[in-house]
Design a protein around this nucleic acid. Structure first.
Lengths: 249, 249
DNA sequence: CGGGTTAGTGTGTCTATACATTTAGTCGTC
DNA sequence: GACGACTAAATGTATAGACACACTAACCCG
């Protein structure tokens, strides 16, 4: 031990890579817990912790008496890849690009103030960018930050790269995020930037990000061209999913 | 404890209800692990298992040295609610309805055969329904099953209720599902049934469901009217999310 | 009064053991 | 050869104890 990495993380990493390289193919059984215990000179705890992680990602299926088997391989993403468009492109092997339309400091309207849990008309920093995938328009991004967070961006060249990375480097604590996914017709700005007709279908992802003590640090609205991005989710029975479908009515 | 329920499930249920009733409000600390151990006369294992469940649902946030705190309340759903439109409506307090357009037995086209992992031109059962929310058109549903599974539906009144429930009752083992979410313009059928113009934005959810040994049992395509349904997902840093964004290019 | 030290609390991780429950396979008998 | 009972193996659950690491607050001292 003492390699700076917890045992259960090591086991998780080993199993994940072995699964994604099809060393353990879909339908195959995984090594039993006791085998893994021996191989990693560990007790059952860390092994079961690793299994639990993979199960919650939908990679494996297990049950009393049954061998644990590999399900159809599904890509899984890190938190960073899920919150940052730049990081997602990098992980997927694409080149991210951005053309900033505006960086604004303004008072929050009531809806935004509620989303950021700040006083109405409290100052916020808003960023409006067209984002590219391998040089082609792919997404329209509207980001809003409370001034305390957004001040780090007023002097940042928003055409140069990842805002998320810059905020992390500036010491902003981003711990968790809630995303809401729906479909919406393009508004005039969207249509012009993406080169489509007004009302054409877009995949909208609204995101709220929070610090570890629950303070909102971001409220954003991303609109993807269909065909550019889609979301895939794996759910296993008995494992309640973090995704919920909500009616707007 | 012989009450037919595992201890960790009991603790999970208690915490979940206490959180959703705002007995522990967002931002508040949860009781410490040792307190919960005493209250439930349990060791730390089950308590930590319950915590892990809630953490993976995005309900709480914890860390070394920090108290565990409640995050903004997010609705969470059971597997049944996530896979069955009827069950989802019931849980949300709405009334589900359905108007069957067609029930067809036909040979699978290549795409569908690949999705169900069966021979091309092997027989499948396809169901095409308009689904209602409180009596108003809300979603167009296209379901496809291999004959072995779909045979249970050929004699079933598809206007009467939940197909998912009927399959479960028929002994079909549905263990896990993969869903892909994107936006798409309405095709002529969609437009006519939902009363919208062709090309209007819809939220599409394609689903593949599997048995516990990995055999596909369903391949479906649901298209929701915007405003009817949206998806919400909570992600916590360090907790890899089962949702991944995939480029179609 | 301010600042550093220290004790206490709380969560994260790991070990070791025990038993329950379900599945799969083996053996034996009919 | 088929069927049943038994056995072994695998995962699920729970207990108890130990240490690591991080944060908090109280305390002491300059």
């Amino acid at each position: 031990m003492g390699n700076g990495r917890q045992q259960h993380e090591e086991i998780t990493a080993y199993l994940r890579s072995a699964i994604s390289s099809h060393e353990f193919a879909p339908g195959d059984p995984l090594p039993s817990e006791s085998e893994l215990c021996q191989r990693f000179e560990s007790s059952r705890g860390p092994v079961r912790q690793a299994m639990a992680t993979l199960r919650s990602e939908g990679l494996i299926s297990s049950g009393r008496g049954r061998r644990t088997i590999v399900l159809d391989t599904v890509p899984t993403q890190s938190f960073d890849g899920v919150i940052s468009y730049s990081e997602w492109c990098r992980q997927s092997g694409f080149e991210a690009g951005q053309i900033t339309q505006s960086v604004t400091r303004r008072p929050a309207d009531p809806t935004l103030a509620a989303a950021l849990e700040i006083e109405p008309r409290a100052p916020v920093v808003s960023i409006f960018r067209l984002r590219l995938l391998n040089g082609i328009p792919a997404m329209v991004e509207r980001l809003n930050y409370p001034l305390e967070v957004g001040q780090h961006l007023l002097t940042f060249d928003t055409d140069s790269g990842s805002i998320y990375q810059h905020l992390i480097d500036s010491g902003v604590d981003i711990n968790n995020a809630t995303r809401t996914i729906d479909a919406i017709g393009a508004d005039p700005d969207d249509a012009q930037l993406l080169g489509i007709t007004e009302g054409a279908p877009l995949l909208r992802v609204r995101r709220r990000a929070f610090t570890s003590n629950g303070t909102p640090v971001e409220s954003s609205d991303d609109r993807y061209l269909p065909g550019t991005a889609s979301f895939t989710l794996n759910t296993i029975r008995g494992n309640p999913s973090p995704l919920s479908m909500v009616s707007a009515r």
